[in-house]
Simulated scan of single mutants.
Amino acid sequence: MAHDLFRRRPGSDRDGTLAPTLGGRLGPFLRPGWARTDAARRAAAALLVLVAVVMVVRDGREDSGDPVVVAAHDLTPGRVLTPDDLRTVDRRGAEVPGSAVRGLDAVVGRTVASPVRGGEILTDVRLLGPRLAEAAAGTADARVVPVRLSDAGLADLIREGDRVDVLTVGAARDTDASRPPTATVLASGATVVLVTPEQPSAARRDRVVMLALAAPDASAVAAASLTDAITVTLH
Rank of each mutant, 00 (worst) to 15 (best):
V192H: 04
S225L: 08
D141A: 11
R41E: 12
D59N: 14
R7A: 14
A135M: 10
A19F: 05
V68D: 03
L226I: 01
D105I: 00
A222K: 05
D15V: 09
L132R: 04
L226E: 09
A155N: 03
R131H: 14
G23R: 14
R110S: 14
E62I: 12
D141M: 08
T111Q: 06
E120Y: 04
A215H: 10
V232Q: 07
A100N: 05
R87C: 01
P97H: 09
G93D: 14
S178D: 14
G170Q: 10
V101E: 11
A177C: 00
A140D: 11
L149P: 03
A46N: 04
T88R: 10
P115N: 13
R126T: 08
A40F: 06
A172K: 05
V69P: 06
D105F: 04
D15C: 05
V209H: 04
R42F: 03
A19V: 13
L186D: 06
L75G: 04
L75W: 09
G129Y: 12
R207M: 07
R207G: 04
P181R: 12
S178T: 15
A229Y: 07
R87P: 00
A172Y: 11
D38G: 11
D84A: 15
A44G: 04
A100E: 07
D15P: 00
R9W: 07
H3W: 13
D165H: 07
P180D: 09
G98W: 03
A52E: 14
L194E: 14
V166G: 01
R173Q: 09
V232E: 08
A135Y: 02
D176G: 02
A106K: 05
A52R: 00
T196N: 00
P180S: 03
R92M: 00
G11Y: 08
A43M: 06
H235I: 01
